[in-house]
Design a protein around this nucleic acid. Structure first.
Length: 240
DNA sequence: AAACCCCACAACCGCCTTAAA
DNA sequence: CTTTAAGGCGGTTGTGGGGTT
């Protein structure tokens, strides 16, 4: 074909589509011999008619031995929801918190289980997002409280003060971190993040759907854990 | 039985960043 | 400093299997 058209210089017509067992075997063999990397060498050294990108993707998303097989667990799902509420579609960032899961897997999971639900039931999606947001906010507030308690209790800050701030009907909700004490979060990014959480709480508190609000906060109390060793304290911490 | 639809996930594409030459 | 190859990332599409009509 190439010769017929005078394209002798064309070296490869890369194979595309689903990988065969034989191709997988060749790729695994290549990684055994040369390590993972230099993916553009695979076709030459392993005899695979796949381009480097395709090989890398196949290895990273499917063949890597440290991949976790099987369904996403409820615990992993909560992590995905939490982190997605924090980071948005930064799938690789989210994947770093889920050992053995790939960004592609998490991305697909999110799209099929949550984004799709939004099409058929926007309420369900909103609730899911609100749940994740509320969960994250609560965690942050709890951690904040813990930190403050460790810092010599000099400011006598407690969560009731914070929550009374949130509960104000005032429009004056622009968060001022000095109200919560000093130096948390420590970076500008984190300050922005916590600021958004505070606004998020305000939105939750403003929701007109009382059932949804109750449901969201009910769910919070039923979390298995967000970190096992904090659970007991967490359950006895009244954030209202 | 066959046509159609839906879902889950694998794979590709294009763009961006990084590192090496 | 510039160029280029390689890798990484997020969005999108393709594919196969199972269920429904």
């Amino acid at each position: 074909m190439a010769q017929q058209m005078g394209w002798e210089a064309v070296e490869h017509v890369w194979r595309k589509g689903p990988w065969t067992a034989e191709e997988d075997r060749l790729l695994i063999e290549y990684v055994k011999l040369y390590g993972d990397g230099r993916w553009n060498n695979v076709s030459r050294l392993a005899g695979l008619k796949r381009n480097g990108k395709s090989c890398r993707l196949r290895w990273v998303n499917y063949l890597r031995p440290d991949l976790k097989k099987g369904q996403i667990t409820p615990h992993e799902e909560r992590i995905i929801l939490d982190l997605h509420s924090r980071w948005g579609n930064r799938w690789s960032t989210i994947a770093r918190s889920l050992p053995g899961r790939t960004d592609n897997e998490i991305k697909n999971y999110w799209r099929t289980h949550f984004k799709k639900n939004g099409k058929t039931s926007s309420e369900r999606l909103k609730k899911s997002q609100a749940q994740a947001q509320a969960r994250l906010l609560k965690r942050q507030l709890f951690q904040f409280q813990q930190q403050q308690q460790q810092q010599q209790q000099e400011d006598h800050i407690d969560m009731k003060k914070i929550m009374s701030y949130f509960d104000k009907e005032s429009d004056d909700r622009s968060p001022s971190f000095t109200q919560f004490g000093q130096e948390y979060p420590s970076t500008t990014d984190e300050q922005g993040f916590l600021s958004s959480l505070i606004n998020g709480y305000a939105n939750l508190a403003d929701t007109s759907n009382e059932d949804m609000t109750i449901s969201i906060w009910d769910d919070l109390w039923n979390l298995d854990d967000f970190r096992g060793n904090n659970r007991a304290n967490f359950q006895h911490t009244n954030f209202y």
